[in-house]
């Protein structure tokens, strides 16, 4: 799990162009949206692309994103549960 979380942080920084951030700046349990990383609605859609491109997981309903993208950890848990 820790390896996946670490890998995800790198992928998020790249996919969302967070060039001024390093992996260690991202707390695995901090909220991605709102106060945490301050991501917005476009980022949420972009994370859906990340899941499909890097992990082969399709999120059919964008509204599910709210639960999946609470934190890097919830994202990693979702990937592990849905990996084929």
């Amino acid at each position: 799990m820790d390896a996946l979380i670490d890998q995800l942080k790198g992928e998020i920084i790249e996919q969302l162009n967070l060039e001024d951030l390093k992996k260690e700046d991202i707390n695995s349990d901090a909220p991605l949206f709102g106060e945490g990383l301050g991501l917005d609605s476009i980022d949420a859609l972009e994370l859906i692309v990340l899941l499909e491109k890097n992990h082969g997981i399709k999120v059919a309903n964008p509204a599910d994103g709210k639960k999946i993208f609470q934190s890097v950890r919830t994202m990693a848990e979702y990937i592990q549960a849905n990996k084929k």
Binding site: I42, V49, E52
Partner: peptide, 9 residues
């Protein structure tokens, strides 16, 4: 094929 919303916008 991975169109990106952050690019398209």
């Amino acid at each position: 094929y991975f169109p990106s919303p952050a690019v398209f916008v």
